[in-house]
Amino acid sequence: MTLQTSPSVTRALVLFSGGQDSATCLAWALDRFDAVETIGFDYGQRHAVELSCREKVRIGMASLKESWASRLGDDHMIDATVLKSLGETAMTHDVAIETTDAGLPSTFVPGRNLLFLTLAGALGVRRGVGVLVGGMCETDYSGYPDCRNDTIQAQAETLRLGLGKPMTIETPLMYIDKAGTWAMALELGGQGLIDLIVEDTHTCYLGDRTHRHDWGYGCGTCPACELRAAGWDRWQVSR
Rank of each mutant, 00 (worst) to 15 (best):
1 M>V: 09
2 T>D: 03
12 A>P: 10
12 A>Q: 07
13 L>T: 03
14 V>Y: 09
20 Q>S: 14
23 A>V: 10
24 T>W: 03
25 C>P: 05
25 C>G: 10
31 D>W: 09
32 R>Q: 00
35 A>P: 04
41 F>D: 00
44 G>M: 05
48 A>R: 13
49 V>I: 02
52 S>G: 05
54 R>P: 01
54 R>S: 01
56 K>Y: 08
61 M>W: 07
64 L>R: 04
65 K>F: 01
65 K>R: 01
67 S>V: 12
70 S>M: 09
71 R>T: 00
75 D>A: 01
75 D>S: 05
77 M>S: 13
77 M>N: 08
84 K>A: 15
86 L>R: 01
89 T>M: 02
94 D>W: 11
109 V>F: 06
112 R>Y: 03
115 L>F: 07
117 L>N: 10
118 T>K: 03
119 L>W: 09
126 R>K: 10
130 G>I: 10
133 V>R: 00
135 G>A: 07
139 T>E: 05
139 T>Q: 07
140 D>I: 05
142 S>M: 13
156 A>L: 02
157 E>G: 09
158 T>M: 07
161 L>V: 15
161 L>Y: 12
161 L>M: 08
165 K>T: 15
166 P>M: 10
171 T>N: 13
178 K>Q: 00
179 A>E: 00
179 A>C: 05
184 M>I: 13
190 G>Y: 14
193 L>K: 00
197 I>L: 14
199 E>R: 12
205 Y>N: 04
205 Y>P: 06
207 G>R: 04
207 G>M: 06
207 G>F: 10
214 D>I: 13
236 Q>H: 15
